[in-house]
Design a protein around this nucleic acid. Structure first.
Length: 285
DNA sequence: AACCCGTACAACCGCCTGCTT
DNA sequence: CAAGCAGGCGGTTGTACGGGT
């Protein structure tokens, strides 16, 4: 079927937004709320594509956006989340309050990807800000750090397939089928497995479905989506896939358990503890 | 001062999914 | 059920800027 463009391209402004355009957009959204992006430019009197308006709002004008100065803790978190999730920038951004997927993506492409690449070639970690001492965790060579990072390159497709080594198949399939027991697609697991037990396993499932019941719920606990206030404790991270949960029983996590404070990463978030959690997760995955 | 080059990042593009009609 | 629409996502591009020569 045909698809009309989101806007007529003729006569529209392109490129960098001016302060005036920003103001018009902000004023309009404050008055009318988000949404209806296609009609927004016309109604707001902006000579911009609706998509462009949406992007501008979400990435720069929206309240609560943090600009620049990505801390090393955040960088480390991005690296680990990228290890875990691949190029799913929106998911990664959702775990970094105030950061946008575009910013994280740019930062990754310009800084972190090279750094990670360097790490795979030569073990010593080279951080952008050498003057600042690294955290204890990064001084200790974490297990995953010395290993190559399997960067998943995708092209604007949902992550619905994951290659798993045979030992994980049973664990994962159990989860996937329990989540998706109504979805006949997941049954491809069993048939595939029966027909090919010797090689890596390509399973059809939504990674979120796999994550949500246990791991992703933990992920959500550790890296709440923006704006969320999570009332649980990371020490509850009894990972079903990990018999050894020592990695997550850090002092900081114990402290969280002992207090009744809701877990709020913005306040005094122990990135190191989470990083170790992610390490264990990454090793498994 | 002029030029070149590498980097950073804002913005665009095409494709996808989910929802509505 | 198919068409159409809205919004979201990740990849890529364009350009401003700073440092080096």
């Amino acid at each position: 079927m045909g698809r009309r463009p989101c806007c007529a391209k003729e006569g529209l402004n392109r490129g960098i937004w001016t302060a005036g355009e920003d103001k018009i957009l902000v004023d309009y959204i404050q008055a009318h709320g988000e949404g209806k992006w296609r009609d927004l430019p016309q109604q707001a009197g902006l000579k911009r594509c609706g998509k462009s308006c949406r992007l501008r709002w979400l990435n720069y004008l929206r309240p609560g956006i943090k600009r620049g100065n990505i801390s090393m803790d955040e960088e480390e978190l991005i690296i680990r989340l990228h290890n875990l999730l691949g190029n799913r920038w929106s998911l990664i951004a959702g775990r970094l309050p105030g950061r946008t997927d575009n910013e994280i993506k740019n930062h990754w492409n310009t800084n972190l990807s090279k750094r990670v690449q360097d790490q795979t070639h030569q073990n010593p970690v080279k951080w952008s800000n050498e003057s600042e001492p690294r955290s204890e965790l990064s001084k200790e060579e974490s297990p995953s750090r010395s290993e190559p990072h399997p960067v998943i390159r995708t092209k604007a497709v949902r992550c619905t397939r994951v290659i798993l080594p045979p030992p994980l198949i049973d664990q994962v399939a159990g989860k996937a089928t329990s989540v998706h027991n109504s979805n006949s697609e997941t049954s491809s697991y069993s048939s595939t497995r029966q027909s090919d037990l010797s090689s890596d396993f390509l399973a059809d499932f939504n990674i979120d479905d796999l994550l949500i019941p246990d791991e992703a719920q933990n992920l959500d606990s550790c890296f709440p989506l923006e704006g969320e206030k999570v009332d649980c404790y990371p020490s509850d991270l009894t990972l079903s896939m990990h018999d050894d949960a020592e990695g997550i029983r850090s002092e900081g996590l114990e402290r969280w358990r002992d207090t009744d404070e809701p877990f709020q990463p913005n306040a005094s978030f122990d990135f190191n503890s989470l990083a170790s959690f992610l390490d264990s997760d990454v090793d498994t995955i």
